[in-house]
Amino acid sequence: MNSVETADTAAGYLDDLGARLRELGLPAEHVRVTVADLAAHLAECGGVAEEEFGPVEEFARELAPEGAGRADPPGPDGDSRVEVWRWTADTFVDEELLGRFGDEGWEMRRVDALGRFVCHRDLDRPQRWEYRRELVSRGREGLDERLAPEGWEACGDWVVYAWFKRPRAASLGPAAELSTVPSVPSRWNFFSRRFYALLGLLAAALAASGVTVALRDGDATSGLGYVAGLLAGAAVPVAGFLAWRRWRSRRP
């Protein structure tokens, strides 16, 4: 391989790495200095990028901070090798995605404080999983007991939703075991167009109400104050509801 070819390959690898790190949510400046640092490393050791750093997708995940779509190394629990992947989605698509990733061997263990699904996959004997979501805005009395006979087990909850999982082995038997699994997805957030549209609509409504008030009063700060008041007013019942939920969940 001549030096031009090597430089081109290295540049391609580093470009690809930068793009993947950005996809994983790293700030642009952090990506820039990381890529520059690795370019300096390559220049000094004279190696080939892929040989030095490994496959680009895997290296990007390793470099990303905890939780940014990275599969953690095998955990210490028992002898089995387990990979962990945290991801999130909005409620328009979460059920569909859980079904898809469950079929790829991902077992949801919990929903973390940031609202991410914490999923494990057994690398030695990956199994297919299925999921269902229940609305628990009025509490979940009797829900777990009602679903348990069908093999459903609670695996996480968030605000007004509870998720349940069931191994496909319950219906498929040994056929639920996967012989091969795809690699860990490089994305960790799956927000739908409907979610962004809703967000845009809310932002537009908020901006419009602020502008209306500002024009009526002939004072821009009045409009800003109105918008701030609306946001604060919306936060109070949400905080009250979350506190109530926490209190209920801690009750014996």
């Binding site: 030095e52 750093f53 390793e62």
Partner: peptide, 8 residues
């Protein structure tokens, strides 16, 4: 020691 091991 490869960069792929060290930098993470």
């Amino acid at each position: 020691i490869k960069g792929g091991t060290l930098y993470p």
